[in-house]
């Protein structure tokens, strides 16, 4: 079963439109939603969680319509927003007690284990936490009620590299269970590159692509060559060209590049930047 299916989703604001979005997150997988600031990542996540009203389209979470089974779905979904949203005066222990009375499947032992693992102080109020500690607490809450789907909106931004690595490892561990899935949005593409099975690129409210990460990395590559060599390439091979005084750097389809030319691997970040520039 797919963890998440979005079909023809549209939401319009006076200055922005999320336009006819189609996404699928298969069960047991991690989908990275990549986009610049203002590309529509948070709008998509808010629509999935029924925090804002869609204009049209359907959203199915764990096989159920998101608006119709709102409360039941939220029992099975762990969410981390870019601002954790936990009241400032609450301590870790108080948050645990509040959540115990919020989620039917709340696992106190798991919460304590994660709090210890993440090294969070028990008695300090939330307002005195650093950004990293705040996100860690929100992640601990999201992972302590046997959720089947994690939805993470910019959950790793603002974290230092060591904490980011720890957190990314936790998400990876979470999806070792084939019933668990993760939708994660970020503009820090390197995190998603490590973590994701699928990537979706959003640009100005439009989906540029949604593909298996490994397939994308196999399909595309970087070609460093001279302007002359570039001219000889078949048109279908080249997606985007960046020229400089010493030659050119091109994002190419590996299968269409003639033998003999060396195509280097491309990162998801480079791929995203090239595609956004191409779209402009």
């Amino acid at each position: 079963m797919n963890a998440l299916e979005i079909r023809n989703l549209t939401k319009s604001y006076p200055d922005f439109t999320l336009d006819n979005l189609n996404l699928t997150l298969p069960g047991g997988c991690i989908l990275g939603l990549i986009g610049e600031n203002g590309a529509g990542k948070s709008t998509t996540i808010k629509l999935i969680l029924d925090m804002i009203r869609k204009d049209s389209g359907t959203i199915t979470i764990l096989g159920r319509d998101n608006a119709e089974y709102d409360k039941r779905i939220k029992e099975e979904v762990g969410v981390v927003l870019d601002e954790a949203g936990i009241p400032e005066c609450l301590t870790v222990a108080q948050v645990g007690r509040v959540m115990k009375h919020t989620f039917r499947n709340w696992d106190e032992a798991e919460y304590s284990r994660l709090i210890r693992k993440l090294g969070l102080p028990d008695k300090k109020p939330f307002k005195d936490f650093s950004r990293g500690m705040k996100m860690k607490l929100a992640i601990a809450v999201a992972m302590s009620h046997h959720s089947r789907l994690l939805i993470l909106d910019e959950a790793t931004s603002g974290l230092d590299p060591v904490v980011r690595d720890e957190v990314v490892e936790m998400f990876s561990e979470f999806t070792r269970d084939e019933n668990h899935s993760v939708l994660i949005s970020s503009h820090i593409v390197s995190d998603l590159e490590k973590l994701c099975d699928y990537v979706a690129f959003l640009h100005k409210g439009k989906l540029m692509l949604c593909e298996e990460k490994d397939r994308l990395l196999e399909e595309y590559g970087l070609l460093h060559c001279t302007a002359e060599e570039l001219k000889q390439l078949p048109a279908e091979a080249v997606r985007y060209i960046k020229e400089n005084p010493y030659g050119a750097e091109a994002m190419v389809r590996r299968s269409a590049v003639p033998d003999g030319l060396h195509v280097s691997p491309i990162s998801i970040e480079e791929l995203f930047v090239f595609m956004v520039k191409e779209a402009r």
Binding site: E75, V79, A84, G85, P87, T102, R104
Partner: peptide, 11 residues
Amino acid sequence: SRWLQYSGTLP
């Protein structure tokens, strides 16, 4: 504290 947004994600 943005609790209103966060509580929108809770059951």
